[in-house]
Design a protein around this nucleic acid. Structure first.
Lengths: 229, 229
DNA sequence: GACGAATTGGACAAGTCTGTCTAAATTTAT
DNA sequence: ATAAATTTAGACAGACTTGTCCAATTCGTC
C-alpha cells in the first residue's frame, strides 16, 4: 500500500477477490435465509473465508447487508440499462422485435442471479430498512421506468404505436410480458426459457392488440423512413 | 369437554378465542419479522397470551407457522371466490363494471390483511417449505385461476369480448389491473384507494382495447339479450 | 528473501431463543 | 359450589449467534 494508480487506500488484488467472494456468498445466504436467519459463519464458509475477514471488511452484519443491497441495486441497474439499450427503435417486425426485447428484459434483469436476489431482499426486508429501500426506489425504479417509457414514447412518435401515456404503457408492457410468471416468481423459482417465451409472446400480442396503430401501413412506413434517414 | 354438538375434542369457547388470537398475532409477527426473526415471546405478548399456551396449542414454532399458512390460504381463497362471484356476467357498462371488479379484486384479495400476509410469507419462506407451498399452489392459484378464467370465457361467449385463450386473458387482466402497484407491493406497502382505482382504470382500458369486440354493438346486443332471457 | 499487511482459526463473553417443567391462579361446565 | 381443564408466570437447560481478541500463518511486494 505505497503508491497506486487509483486514488488511495485500495488494497492488493487478493483483497478484492476476497471482498467479491464475500459479497457473492452473502447475497446468496441473505437471500436464502433472510437477514435474521442468515449467520456469519454460513457466509464465511460459503465464501471460503474466515469469519474474522468478514468483520474486517464490513464491520458488522447489518453493514454487510446494506452493502449487499447497494451492490445489487447498482449491478441490476447496469443490467437493465444495458438491456434497455437493445430496445427496438427501428423494428423490422414489431411483434417479433418486442417479444425478443421482453424476453431479454425478463431473462437478463428479472430471472438472473442479481435480479432474483435483489427482488427477494426487497420483499423480505423492505419494511425493516425504510431508508435503504427508499434509496433503492429512487436509484432503481425511479430511473429505469422513465428510461423504458422514453423508448416507448419514441416508438409511438415514430408511428409504430398509438400510445397516450408512455409511462403507463411501459408498465403495462412489462406486466403483460410477465403475466404468466407471477406464481413462479413468488415462490422464488426460475421459469424455463420456454415459459418466458410463452409469456412474452402472449403479453406482446395483447400489448399490440391494444396499442398497435389502427391504420398501420401508410403512416408507420412514412415515419420509420424519416427516422431511418 | 363431555358431549358437544361438534364431533369431539372441541374445547370450550375461551379456548377458541385464545387460538384465534394466537393465529392473528403469529401471522402479524411472522410476516413482519420472517420465520427466523420472529420469536415466540413476541407472538405471545402480541396475542395477550402466555408463551406456554402457544406451546399447548401448536406444539412448536414450525407447526405454528404451518398452521398460519394453511389458515391464511383458506381465508384468502374464501375471499377470492367471494369476489369472483361478483364478476359482471351481464355488464351494463363493460368498462365500468370491469374496473369495479378489478378494484374489488385488488382491495379485497391482495391489499387486505390476509392477502398481504400470505403473499409475504410465500415470498419469504416459500423456498424453505417446498411441500407446504406446493400445497398452497394447488389450493390457491390452482383453483382460483380457472375460476376467474371461466368467468372471462363466459363473457366472451356472451359476445362481450373477443378472447382466444381465457386462461391467458385472465392472467393478463389482473396483471394489467395491478401494473402500476408492483413497486408498492414489493416493499410491503398498501396503495391508496386512488392508486388502486388509477391502475385498475388504465389496466382495464388497455385490456378492452385488446379484447373488446371489434364490431361490438350489433353482436354483443344480440348475445347479451339472449343471455338475459 | 524479507518485510508489512491481511488472513486464519480458535477461544471467548454476552446475549438471545426454543422448548420443558413447575406450582399457583383462573376459567368453564356441571 | 365443586371438579376438571386451561392458563399463567417464572425458572431453567441447551443450543446458537454476534462481535471481539489474539497468536500463528500466509500472502503480496519490494
Amino acid at each position: 500500500m505505497k503508491h497506486d494508480v487509483s486514488p488511495d487506500s485500495i488494497p492488493p488484488r487478493g483483497h478484492e477477490a476476497k471482498r467479491a467472494s464475500i459479497m457473492d456468498a452473502a447475497g446468496e445466504v441473505f437471500c436464502r435465509e433472510s437477514f435474521a436467519g442468515a449467520n456469519i459463519d454460513m457466509i464465511a464458509a460459503e465464501a471460503g473465508v474466515s469469519r474474522q475477514t468478514i468483520y474486517n471488511h464490513h464491520g458488522d452484519k447489518e453493514k454487510l447487508f446494506v452493502a449487499i443491497v447497494r451492490d445489487l441495486t447498482e449491478r441490476c441497474n447496469a443490467g437493465i440499462f444495458a438491456t434497455i439499450s437493445t430496445f427496438p427503435d427501428q423494428p423490422k417486425d414489431l411483434e417479433t422485435d418486442l417479444i425478443a426485447f421482453a424476453v431479454r428484459m425478463t431473462r437478463n434483469c428479472i430471472c438472473n442471479r442479481d435480479g432474483k436476489f435483489l427482488r427477494k431482499l426487497i420483499q423480505t426486508e423492505g419494511e425493516r430498512y425504510p431508508e435503504l429501500f427508499a434509496e433503492w426506489r429512487e436509484q432503481g425504479p425511479g430511473r429505469t421506468w422513465p428510461a423504458i417509457a422514453a423508448r416507448f414514447a419514441r416508438l409511438a412518435h415514430a408511428g409504430f404505436l398509438d400510445i397516450e401515456d408512455p409511462d403507463v404503457a411501459a408498465r403495462q408492457f412489462l406486466a403483460l410480458a410477465n403475466a404468466e410468471l407471477q406464481t413462479t416468481f413468488m415462490l422464488g423459482g426460475t421459469p424455463t426459457d420456454d415459459e418466458v417465451l410463452q409469456s412474452a409472446t402472449h403479453g406482446v400480442r395483447t400489448f399490440l392488440r391494444a396499442f398497435a396503430r389502427r391504420q398501420p401501413a401508410a403512416d408507420a412506413q412514412k415515419h420509420s423512413a424519416l427516422a431511418g434517414a
